[in-house]
């Protein structure tokens, strides 16, 4: 079970991030989770939203450079060692994690190299969220 994420390329200029938030807000898109990464001159914003295809279109039409990609969204058990169990499972199979970020509640978004394999591995052990479930977080 995978989730679709919207990625946006942004130059480091003040107000650019606000523009994204404003735009999506005005169009009724409720952001469920996001993360930002930055280099000296530019950054990447990643968004989990109820309808990623529509959100991407809104951003694209407004002139942003966007991309859709697949990630897995894990409901990590809310106790000490909860995150470690997921990471250990992936590490044992040498599946590398590109990045991860937490979204609403105890949900963590993972971008991994071999996503099919990762889903297979985790499916029985932890709760994986679907696009549908992300919508109603």
């Amino acid at each position: 079970m995978k989730v679709t994420q919207v990625t946006v390329f942004l130059e480091n200029r003040s107000g650019r991030l606000a523009e994204i938030a404003d735009l999506l807000g005005r169009r009724g898109v409720n952001i469920r989770g996001f993360s930002t990464t930055e280099a000296a001159e530019y950054g990447i914003v990643r968004l989990i939203v109820p309808d990623p295809v529509a959100a991407r279109e809104i951003l694209h039409d407004a002139g942003f450079t966007t991309h859709l990609s697949q990630v897995i969204c894990v409901a990590v058990s809310d106790e000490p060692g909860g995150l470690a169990r997921v990471l250990d499972t992936l590490a044992e199979q040498k599946i590398s994690v590109d990045y991860l970020y937490s979204i609403s509640f105890n949900n963590i978004c993972f971008a991994v190299h071999d996503i099919e394999h990762a889903v297979e591995l985790l499916a029985g052990k932890v709760t994986l969220l679907s696009d549908e479930q992300v919508k109603i977080l």
Binding site: T7, A39, I44, T65, H67
Partner: peptide, 15 residues
């Protein structure tokens, strides 16, 4: 200019 053909997913790709 970074178009959508170039823009992948990670910072590493851009760098």
């Amino acid at each position: 200019e970074v178009g959508e053909d170039l823009f992948g997913e990670t910072m590493g790709q851009l760098e």
